[in-house]
Amino acid sequence: MKDLLTALRTPRGIVVAALLVLLGVLPLLTQAFDQRYVLSIGTRVVIWSIAAMSLNLILGYGGLVSFGHAVFFGIGGYTVGILAHHDVFSGWIQWPLGLLVCALWAAAVGALSLRTRGLYFIMITLAFAQLVFYVGVGLEAYGGDDGLNIARRSVFSGLIDLRHRPTFYWLCYALLLATTFGLWRIVNSRFGMVLRGAKSNETRMLALGFPVFRYRLTAFVISGTLGGLSGLLLANHDAYISPSMMSWVKSGDLIVIVVLGGMGSLTGPIFGAIAFFVLEESLKPLIDLGRKGWGEYWQIVFGPLLILVALYARGGIDSLLGRPPRSGGGHG
């Protein structure tokens, strides 16, 4: 805890704390100004932050470019959706099962794909995600391509009412805080050090006697399970699932968020998710100001922006706050 308090006194700590407080009171603000749409975007930001943080564990700290992370949106979401379709609404069943399926899938995919390197790893993770995507498309009983409406959000025996939007938001927010804390513990533990060591010099870690493969596989499973958590939340938020939630474009978006925010920075993905959704929501009206009706073409600005980030801003938003105190920067 002492580390946490020291971290709070740095510029990064202040920005992060302010941001987290702002996110925490968002429902009060949106209620005060009667902006339900903003709360919906806020919920998406928080859910995507969890997903991006989970990807950051393997991408930023592990150096493993997984191009299929949105599959866990899909698996988590489909577990909720399929169970709800069969009138099982209990969150006590839906959520643990969803996480378990994600963990198992991550273990299987990780065991196979971590044998490969470089572009092969990028492509095999993508291929496994596409595989699940097409299974989703082929599931005619669960809507196939069109997806499936979820009649009710998960029920936790009356303990918490997820239909109440601010309550649901705060649940997501609490889970984001828990994820942040958990990942903070992980990346600064011995386990996290081995993972990061293997990113910068795998041969050396092997020579030191660390079973790098097993460490990476464990990280992959943790990452997938957390990704599944965001999938459960996303399905509950949208009350709808479809294969498009795990399309490869979504996986690309997650990578974009992680890099935009700052790879290998604990809170970078939160910055990235905020920036991504704020850009999406603000570029449209901004371009509309310049020329009416052109706002829908916002990606014509966003695309080149990504190219610029890739070329000139490796550290992402996080690097604007100076170098992190203990964890190494995002050197690829």
Partner: peptide, 28 residues
């Protein structure tokens, strides 16, 4: 040409941006 010396993640990010750009360009 600016990407050759970079790592694969930069390639993925930049060319993903190119896809978004070209798709929108075609729409325009």
């Amino acid at each position: 040409r600016r990407l050759y010396a970079r790592d694969h993640l930069d390639h993925v990010l930049a060319t993903f941006g190119l896809i978004l750009f070209f798709n929108e360009l075609v729409r325009v």
